[in-house]
Design a protein around this nucleic acid. Sequence first.
DNA 1: ACTCACATGTAACGGGTTACATGATTGA
DNA 2: TCAATCATGTAACCCGTTACATGTGAGT
Lengths: 203, 203
Amino acid sequence: MALEHAILVSLLEKPGSGYELARRFERSIGYFWTASHQQIYRVLKRMESDGWVDVRDVPQQGRPDKKEYSVAALGRDALAGWLHEPIQPESVRHDLAVKIRGAAFDDPAALIREVERHRQAHTERLAHYLAGQARDFPESRSPGTDACTGPGSDPHPVALPSPPDAGRELQHVVLRGGIAYERMMLDWLDDVLATLRRLGSAR
Amino acid sequence: MALEHAILVSLLEKPGSGYELARRFERSIGYFWTASHQQIYRVLKRMESDGWVDVRDVPQQGRPDKKEYSVAALGRDALAGWLHEPIQPESVRHDLAVKIRGAAFDDPAALIREVERHRQAHTERLAHYLAGQARDFPESRSPGTDACTGPGSDPHPVALPSPPDAGRELQHVVLRGGIAYERMMLDWLDDVLATLRRLGSAR
DNA sequence: ACTCACATGTAACGGGTTACATGATTGA
DNA sequence: TCAATCATGTAACCCGTTACATGTGAGT
């Protein structure tokens, strides 16, 4: 389980209400972990009773009051503990792969539309990630593998990434992972489409 | 939900017992869908009472008797129905990404070991997939992108993939997806390690 | 009047994980 | 005798999803 830890990370990056957390889970954090507001409120309540987070009532004008959550000492400890214990590499769950193998007992061509829909969704996500990267990390160029970030790309050789910049760097490497994932998926879905079309035209 | 559909696909490919299914979920099917034996027995029982599968007691000598399950007409219909209804592109869950962002509030260097462990696991999975590909699909060569499967690679131009071969082709394209995923992960984990080491040496 | 964004919840259900439980046969 | 493989389950618990529920204030 990591939802509570994801919430701790998000609240450490910036305190906020359950509603705000829910919106973050549709955006940045949601790139690699999803959660609905119902889930968040439920877990937040448990975390509060466990003393992992502090709550503060924030009256607002022009909109409903909110509860602002921030990480307490116990929460920090819990996060540190989790960070230091090993987790096992997650197992994959691909509905689409099940469908593709199932298509052998149905009409493979009938899946083409579905795969195209998924391809479209991944294209949009990739564009979204790339836009985020261009906005938040404008220093990263080269749409390629990013492998050759040699010297000279930095305009003025300021200090090496100091602790305050670590969070930014880490957010960026996670985002690069999302980008790599979407690119891989697009390539594979093209492979799938080619295979389905080949099978369809062969009969 | 797709476990019952994954089971249907597996039983269509070959009838078998709950135990055998559990082992398949550790191997081929398990590449893209995991399930424990407890889960399988539970779902199998429901599928039986729903008339999706037929059971046959198979007495064995030298080992305990088993129940062999096979797909019934209703199960075939259920699978066909599921194949034709759209599913939404699955959302991602990456514990490791949460940890990486969390490392900003802890010691980034402490994560290196963990990431190396994951890298090792993905290396092994990739090797496993490649071995499976070499065993089951020896006609596929070129460890590259597989993009240029031009003419001439086929020794004798036999018939185009006819329906009996469709299942094989589809299994292969799913396996190629697994291979692409593991390669992408290895590249990304190298990127993560480089980032963590850079942050560690900077302080 | 209606809809949208903000804000917080409860309840029910089903899926997934973990622990526990049983029992036969084979081989070291 | 002990461990491993084959074979089938039950029970408890938590997580995630879906549906339902309530209320404010801003803008059209």
